[in-house]
């Protein structure tokens, strides 16, 4: 469980690392902690997987990866682990999740594929299908991004 201090540190960190020479000191002062305490806590969050990555989140649309396809796959339950691992091993796959099936919606494995064109995404999906031995899938292209934001944790009681 995360205590009040952990939550306060997460609130500060999610504002973005301050652009000053000693950013952890700047955060420490706000929380009445020392710089080494903040550094140790951040390292602990990384080690515990609470911080997935300590780096920069970059908008890839601006970098030439314009086509983004979500490919949904119907995979027999006993093959999900294997198929998930195969898909995840491809560098063009950025996300790979197993999700529950819904009534009338038999798809249970989800991958996000990035490419320069829609055609490229379709070719990549076909390669994934061949590699994982799957035939039932849909390639869903995004036609508009309506929202993309970073989650702000612990700002309100939910």
């Amino acid at each position: 469980m995360l205590n009040k201090l952990d939550q306060a540190l997460i609130r500060e960190l999610q504002k973005g690392l301050p652009l000053v020479s000693r950013p952890f000191l700047a955060i420490a002062r706000k929380l009445h902690l020392s710089e080494p305490e903040v550094l140790a806590k951040v390292q602990e969050f990384i080690d515990r997987g609470i911080i997935r990555r300590f780096g920069a989140a970059v908008r890839h649309q601006d970098l030439g990866y314009v086509a983004n396809a979500m490919v949904v796959w119907q995979v027999p339950d006993e093959r999900v682990q294997e198929a998930g691992r195969i898909m995840a091993s491809f560098s063009e796959v950025s996300h790979c999740y197993e999700r529950i099936r819904a009534p009338g919606w038999p798809y249970n494995l989800y991958t996000v594929i990035h490419g320069q064109t829609e055609e490229q995404c379709r070719e990549k999906a076909a390669r994934l299908a061949a590699a994982a031995g799957l035939t039932d899938y849909l390639v869903l292209f995004s036609t508009a991004e309506l929202k993309k934001s970073s989650m702000k944790y612990f700002l309100e009681e939910t």
Binding site: M1, I10, Q14, V42, G49, I50, A57, V58, S150, Y153
Partner: peptide, 22 residues
């Protein structure tokens, strides 16, 4: 400048929402 131009969406900690407890 990269943050102002929104090339960088967030600098620093990128959290795992599940591990945060969400």
């Amino acid at each position: 400048r990269l943050i102002e131009k929104r090339v960088i969406r967030r600098l620093g900690a990128i959290f795992d929402s599940r591990k945060v407890g969400y």
